[in-house]
């Protein structure tokens, strides 16, 4: 067993790709930690941070959701967001996510994302994109970004709703409509209250909204408030002093909530879409 690193570092895509052979992805050989460690570097603008609280979270998730790894997402996402306290610029650096997945917690990736054996690929394996991949696919990046995009200011409740529905995570997260906070919050209200609660309904609704947004300026219809970046920075600065609670939700950065009027207005629009679109109601 190779000891985990002390601090979170940045691992280059090139090195990560090079070392993620099929045998590694199948779990037949261990992650080549030493080789990877030759290609890590300190993130240029980030203070060194210990991986201990991250490990603690990962281990707790494993304990709590041993039988149902999928359900760990909703528990883990807000807490991971709260522990990491990245700025968006930092979170855009895939090197950090590579390091997390390959060196800090590869066990979590295998546990959560090991695929089923298929005829084509009889040995179960983890998709490479869960280790190094786009933000909406990589095992940790998707959770962090889901938390970042679906939280309502400091309130992580909507994140729990979003991450409790794999279709929201897999479909809606990659659509640019959810970059508009009132849209994201209004969608989640419908998911939460069951109007589009089932996976396929949520999926169909998100797609319908994505289509409607090609003719309707949701941002003009339901203006958002500019996030308070100072408050976010303040929250990032408080990382060292915080303690992650396992049984209750932490508070996120208090950088302002999506304006209630706007969320209400879009909720109305989306409800109408639900009744008009056969695909959303049909599957219910």
């Amino acid at each position: 067993m190779i000891s985990p690193p002390e601090n979170l570092m940045s691992l280059s895509n090139e090195a990560a790709t090079r070392h993620l052979t099929e045998a590694v992805l199948q779990g037949r050989v261990p992650i080549p930690a030493k080789g990877l460690d030759r290609s890590v570097r300190i993130h240029p603008s980030m203070e060194p941070r210990s991986i201990d609280p991250i490990r603690e979270l990962i281990d707790e998730a494993r304990k709590r959701f041993d039988d149902a790894p999928t359900e760990a997402d909703a528990w883990l996402a807000p807490r991971l967001h709260s522990v990491l306290r990245f700025t968006r610029a930092e979170a855009a650096d895939s090197g950090l996510w590579n390091h997390l997945a390959l060196r800090v917690a590869p066990d979590h990736v295998f546990w959560r994302h090991l695929g089923k054996a298929t005829q084509k690929k009889p040995v179960p394996m983890v998709s490479r994109s869960r280790f190094i991949g786009p933000f909406h696919t990589q095992a940790f990046a998707r959770l962090w970004w889901a938390a970042e995009l679906f939280r309502d200011g400091y309130d992580y409740d909507p994140v729990v709703v979003a991450c409790g529905n794999q279709d929201v995570l897999n479909t809606a997260l990659r659509m640019s409509i959810v970059l508009h906070r009132p849209t994201a919050q209004a969608l989640l209200r419908l998911v939460k209250d069951g109007t589009a609660g089932a996976g396929r309904e949520a999926n169909a609704l998100a797609k319908a909204v994505n289509a409607v947004a090609s003719t309707l300026s949701l941002e003009t219809l339901a203006p958002d408030a500019e996030p308070d970046t100072d408050a976010y920075r303040f929250w990032v600065g408080g990382r060292e002093d915080s303690l992650i609670l396992f049984d209750s939700l932490p508070d996120g950065p208090d950088d302002g909530r999506a304006p209630l009027d706007s969320v209400n207005r879009l909720e109305g629009v989306f409800r109408r879409i639900c009744t008009e679109v056969p695909a959303v109601t049909k599957s219910g």
């Binding site: 990659r174 659509m175 640019s176 409509i177 797609k207 994505n210 289509a211 947004a213 090609s214």
Partner: peptide, 10 residues
């Protein structure tokens, strides 16, 4: 197809 804001059409 019906166009979308992001991704391919439906």
């Amino acid at each position: 197809r019906f166009g979308t804001l992001s991704g391919g059409g439906l």
